[in-house]
Measured scan of single mutants.
Amino acid sequence: KLLSSIEQACDICRLKKLKCSKEKPKCAKCLKNNWECRYSPKTKRSPLTRAHLTEVESRLERLE
């Protein structure tokens, strides 16, 4: 599967780190437990900047 097509777990399953069936409108866990089942939009991760990478590398060197 391509990364862009990976389905996201519902908010509660993601928060509780449960295996989500990803069914809509309610996944199996939410249906069974009568929880409100919501699927928040995916958040875009910002790409690493060179400055951040350099900072992490220098912190790693100090720890070694």
Rank of each mutant, 00 (worst) to 15 (best):
K1R: 11
K1I: 04
K1C: 15
L2Q: 15
L2H: 14
L2N: 12
L2I: 11
L2R: 09
L2V: 15
L2M: 14
L3V: 11
L3T: 08
S4F: 14
S4K: 05
S4L: 15
S4H: 12
S4C: 12
S4R: 06
S5Y: 10
S5V: 08
S5H: 11
S5E: 12
I6C: 12
I6V: 09
I6G: 09
I6K: 08
I6T: 12
I6Q: 13
I6S: 11
E7N: 09
E7Q: 09
E7F: 11
E7A: 08
Q8L: 12
Q8H: 10
Q8T: 08
Q8C: 04
Q8A: 12
Q8K: 10
A9N: 04
A9Q: 06
A9T: 03
A9K: 00
C10H: 01
C10G: 02
C10F: 02
C10W: 03
C10L: 00
C10K: 05
D11M: 04
D11K: 00
D11W: 02
D11R: 00
I12M: 09
I12K: 10
I12N: 08
I12R: 10
C13T: 00
C13K: 02
C13Q: 00
C13D: 00
C13S: 00
C13L: 05
R14K: 09
R14W: 02
R14Q: 06
R14P: 05
R14I: 02
L15S: 09
L15A: 11
L15I: 09
L15W: 14
L15M: 12
L15F: 12
K16W: 03
K16E: 00
K16Q: 01
K16C: 06
K16R: 08
K17Y: 07
K17D: 03
K17C: 03
K17A: 03
L18Q: 08
L18G: 15
L18W: 11
L18Y: 10
L18P: 06
K19N: 05
K19S: 06
K19V: 05
K19C: 06
C20N: 01
S21N: 08
S21C: 03
S21F: 00
S21H: 04
S21L: 03
K22M: 07
K22N: 06
K22V: 07
K22G: 03
K22D: 04
K22T: 02
K22H: 09
E23T: 14
E23H: 14
K24V: 15
K24H: 14
P25M: 06
P25A: 06
K26L: 14
K26Q: 15
C27R: 07
C27E: 00
C27P: 05
C27W: 01
A28L: 10
A28W: 15
A28F: 08
A28Q: 14
A28G: 09
K29V: 06
K29Q: 08
C30G: 05
C30T: 06
C30E: 03
C30Y: 05
C30D: 01
L31A: 15
L31I: 12
L31V: 13
L31Q: 10
L31K: 15
L31E: 13
L31T: 10
L31M: 14
K32G: 11
K32A: 11
N33P: 01
N33R: 11
N33D: 09
N33I: 03
N33E: 10
N33T: 09
N34L: 13
N34A: 14
N34W: 07
N34F: 11
N34E: 14
N34I: 14
N34Y: 13
W35R: 11
W35H: 13
W35F: 13
W35Y: 15
W35T: 12
E36W: 07
E36Q: 09
E36K: 12
E36V: 14
E36T: 13
E36S: 13
E36M: 12
E36G: 12
C37Q: 07
C37A: 06
C37W: 02
C37F: 07
C37K: 03
C37L: 02
C37S: 05
R38Y: 15
R38M: 15
R38T: 15
Y39R: 07
Y39P: 01
Y39G: 03
Y39E: 05
Y39M: 05
Y39D: 00
Y39Q: 06
Y39C: 01
Y39W: 10
S40Q: 07
S40G: 09
P41I: 07
P41R: 05
P41E: 10
P41N: 07
K42T: 10
K42F: 11
K42E: 03
K42N: 08
K42M: 13
K42P: 15
K42L: 12
T43L: 13
T43F: 09
T43S: 12
K44G: 03
K44Q: 15
K44I: 13
R45I: 01
R45K: 08
R45M: 05
R45P: 03
S46L: 00
S46I: 01
S46Q: 04
S46V: 00
S46P: 11
S46M: 05
S46H: 03
P47N: 01
P47I: 02
P47D: 08
L48R: 02
L48C: 05
L48P: 04
L48T: 03
L48H: 01
T49W: 03
T49G: 02
T49L: 03
R50N: 01
R50C: 01
R50K: 01
R50H: 02
R50S: 07
R50V: 05
R50W: 03
R50F: 00
A51E: 08
A51K: 12
A51M: 11
A51N: 14
H52P: 00
H52E: 07
H52C: 04
H52R: 09
L53E: 08
L53W: 05
L53G: 02
L53Q: 00
T54R: 06
T54V: 08
T54N: 10
T54Q: 11
T54A: 09
T54D: 09
E55L: 10
E55A: 14
E55C: 14
E55V: 11
E55W: 15
V56W: 02
V56A: 00
V56I: 07
V56Y: 08
V56K: 00
V56R: 01
V56H: 07
V56L: 10
E57P: 06
E57G: 01
E57Q: 06
E57K: 02
S58N: 13
S58P: 05
S58H: 15
S58R: 09
S58F: 13
R59Q: 13
R59W: 01
R59N: 10
L60S: 06
L60I: 10
L60K: 09
L60Q: 05
E61C: 13
E61H: 13
E61V: 15
E61N: 10
E61P: 02
R62Y: 07
R62G: 06
R62D: 02
R62H: 10
R62N: 08
L63F: 13
L63Y: 06
L63K: 02
L63E: 01
L63T: 02
E64Q: 14
E64V: 10
E64L: 09
E64F: 03
